[in-house]
Amino acid sequence: MDETVQKYTTRKGFFKQYKKKSRLQETWNRFLRNKLAVIGLFIFVFIILAAVAAPLIANYDTDAIRVNVPSRLQSPSAKHIFGTDELGRDIMARIVHGARISLVVGCAAIAVALFIGGALGAIAGYSGGKIDDVIMRCMDVFLCLPDVLLALAIVAAFGTNLVNLTIAIGLAFTPKFSRVVRSAVMTVRGVEYVEAARTIGATNTQIITNHVLINCFGPIMVQVTLYVASAILTIAAMSFIGLGIQAPIPEWGNMLASGRVYMRDHAYIVMAPGLAIFLTILSLNLLGDGLRDALDPRLK
């Protein structure tokens, strides 16, 4: 038979037309086509590099912490790219070291939220019924309070050291994560291959780890990215009002707070920290959105 005819009349021929690319490859390609997402990726990588290279750019103790009154409140110049703050410290040094703090605490907090919230959500979503009800009602109660306020309450009770702060923010995001994981699990749970796995005798734990979690991975990664952005914002906000990371540790939020008094005559003092927060959050949001669109493309 003629090849064209074969293409249309035999099953094998018909499907050969549609080469199956690996799903990961396809997702990555779609991601790359999204200009905004790529920009976000670049910015975020830049921020990470700045944070990692912080000790090379500026010495922590001499540049970021040590008070140096004679050089206080200097406008941006070649020596001090972002100027100096009210205690004479180089703002740029404080910014890059602040990046480390924000990123580490933000990611750690979300890791806590993912671990606890994820476990709760997975159990609720997979078990269904009464267990699901009980867990979700508990989470709903927490959702009645905005994250900032809940974190503030926890910090009020337990103090503002770094560990407590991380846990406070982590706990504040736990209910949101439990919802996300639960709905991802519930979507996957009904799919046929779970039933199929069950018929060959896989245990519940095996099903969860091998099938359910793997397919939830995508949507959960999207939320992780977006929530890390929120967490970093929350840290900055709490530090801004004085209930987060305390001076003299450089954190973008508390830099804004202390510089605020001098803002009128030295406007530059609030530019760099604010910009840093903004760019970090923007890049993470772009990344998260880009991931979401790459995983589930729709006609725009």
């Binding site: 804004l256 803002m263 009128r264 609030v270 920290p273 927060i277 903004f278 959050i281 923007l282 949001n285």
Partner: peptide, 22 residues
Amino acid sequence: GLLGISFPIFWLGLLLILLFSV
């Protein structure tokens, strides 16, 4: 929209004050 959800509101407040008040 994208910029709006990424802008920290306390920074925006400070910038607005700088522009419109100062």
